[in-house]
Design a protein around this nucleic acid. Structure first.
Lengths: 236, 236
DNA sequence: AAGTTAAAGAAAATCTATTTTTTGTCAAAA
DNA sequence: TTTTGACAAAAAATAGATTTTCTTTAACTT
C-alpha cells in the first residue's frame, strides 16, 4: 500500500516512515502482544506529531498487526496457541491452492524468477549471519511470493499475503533462538525441486510440511515463554 | 471493529460516526468507483475536522472499500468484471468450506438461531418495500453469518467476512433495479432446508448456486452500465 | 506547433493546542 | 473491610492553522 522506496531512512511522508518502522518493530516482536501503544510516547520517540502516529496505527489495523479500541487507543495484536494452529491450517490450504494453480500456469519466465529467488535465499542463508541476516526475511518472502506468482487469482493471492504476514509475526518471535536443528534450506530445496518438476502433489506436500514444521518450531521453541511474559502487559 | 451502537446518529466518537456513514455510502454506491474522496469536502459535509475524516478513510482501507495513495489522498475502490468473477469463485470456495464445517459441528442452538434469522429475513422480504427494506441488508447478512456460525475456525470466518463485504458492494450497486425475476427467497429456503437436514453436499450446492446467481445478476443487470458511468471520475 | 518551465491555486499532510473521555487514587460512609 | 463517589492525572480524540506537495495553467522557448 505504501511504497517504502529504497532508502528506509527517507520515506515519502512522515506517516509512511512511522508506518514502516512500526511495522518492522511489530513483526520483530519489539512490543509485547496485547500491550498498549501509546500515541504520545510513540510520537515523541519518532519525533513526529500524534496525528502521524494515529494514521500509521490506523493503517496497521488493516494487516491486523494492531487493533483499535474506540476511546481506548491501540494495542498490539495478541498471539495464542489456538490462533497459530488455526492460522497454520488455513494457510496451508490457501498456499497450496495458489501453488497448484501456479504450477499449472507458470511459464519459463516464472521458473527463472523462482530459481533466481531461491539462489539468493540460499546465499543469504549461507552467510556468516545465517538467518539473522537482515535481508534474509525479505528474500524468504520473495521466494514464497515467486512460488505462487503464476497463480491467476488476485483474491487468493491477497488472502495468501495476509496470512503470510500473520505467520511471519509468529516466526520472527523465535527467530533469535538457535533453531539450527531444522534444515530449512533442505525444505526450500524440496519445494523448489518438486515445483520445477511440475509435480503438483509433491510440491504441495513439501510446502505443507514446510509450513507445519515452521509452526511446530514456533510452538515448541518460544510461544509458551512468550505467552508467560505477556502477563506483564507493559506499554511501550 | 467499531461498534456503532443502536443509534447511528450518536456514535462513540466522531471518527466512528464518519466511518459508519461513509461505509454505508460506499456500500450503497453513493460514490462512483475510482473517484476521489476529498478530505476537506467530506469534513464540511459531516461537520467534523479533516483529522476525523482522514482516520475514517484510513480505517476503510482495511476493508478495501477505499484505497490510499500517498500524497494523492483517497479514492473509492474500483470495480471490474474480472474482479467480480475472481471474487465470486474464491468466495464460493470459502463460504462452502465454512458451511461444511458448520453443518458438521452445529448444535441445536445453532439451528434455532439460523431458523430465527431466516424467518426474520423472510418477513422483511415479504414487506411492501421488498428488498429495498432498510433492514433487509442487515437481516440478509445475519442469515449468512448464522449459516456458518458453528464453524470453529476464526481465520476462515474472518476471510469469509472480508469477501462478503466486497461482494455486498457489487450486489447493492444493482439493488435498486427491478430484480424480481430471481426468487431469492427460494434460494435461501433451499440453503436452509439442506442445512437443517445436515445434507452437506446439498447445502453446499445450494449455497454455490445462490452466490453464482447473485454474481450473474450483477453482471447482467448493472455492471456494464456502471463501468461506463465510471468514465466520468467525478469527485464527491 | 509542440514541448518545457514557472507560477499560482488546490489539496494533502502535518503540527500544535484544546476538549473530551477514561483511569487511577484516596477518602468517607456503610 | 468493602464499597462508593469524587477528584486528579493521563491519554485519546478533535479542531484549526500551517507547511508541504501536487496539479493546472499560461507564458515562453525551440
Amino acid at each position: 500500500m505504501i511504497s517504502t522506496g529504497e532508502k528506509p531512512a527517507m520515506s515519502a511522508s512522515k506517516t509512511a516512515g512511522v508506518y514502516t518502522e512500526l511495522r518492522e518493530d511489530l513483526l520483530n516482536g519489539v512490543y509485547q502482544p496485547g500491550s498498549k501503544l501509546m500515541i504520545d510516547a510513540l510520537a515523541t520517540r519518532f519525533r513526529v506529531s500524534p496525528s502521524a502516529v494515529r494514521e500509521a496505527l490506523s493503517r496497521l489495523t488493516s494487516e491486523r498487526l494492531v487493533v483499535a479500541m474506540p476511546q481506548k487507543g491501540f494495542t498490539v495484536a495478541t498471539v495464542s496457541q489456538e490462533d497459530l494452529d488455526d492460522l497454520t491450517q488455513v494457510r496451508i490450504e490457501i498456499e497450496t491452492r495458489c501453488l497448484r494453480r501456479s504450477i499449472e500456469l507458470g511459464d519459463i519466465e516464472w521458473e527463472a524468477a523462482l530459481l533466481a529467488s531461491w539462489h539468493r535465499l540460499c546465499h543469504a542463508g549461507a552467510s556468516p549471519l545465517g538467518r539473522a541476516h537482515p535481508d534474509w526475511e525479505r528474500l524468504h518472502a520473495q521466494f514464497h511470493d515467486d512460488l505462487v506468482a503464476a497463480c491467476d487469482s488476485p483474491w487468493w493471492l491477497r488472502l495468501r499475503h495476509e496470512l503470510y504476514i500473520q505467520a511471519e509475526r509468529y516466526r520472527r518471535m523465535v527467530r533469535s533462538e538457535a533453531d539450527t536443528k531444522r534444515d530449512i534450506e533442505a525444505e526450500h530445496r524440496a519445494i523448489l525441486d518438486r515445483t520445477m518438476a511440475r509435480d503438483a502433489d509433491g510440491a504441495v506436500a513439501a510446502l505443507s510440511r514446510h509450513l507445519s514444521q515452521t509452526a511446530d518450531h514456533v510452538r515448541r521453541t518460544g510461544l509458551t515463554e512468550l505467552l508467560a511474559r505477556a502477563d506483564r502487559a507493559d506499554a511501550i
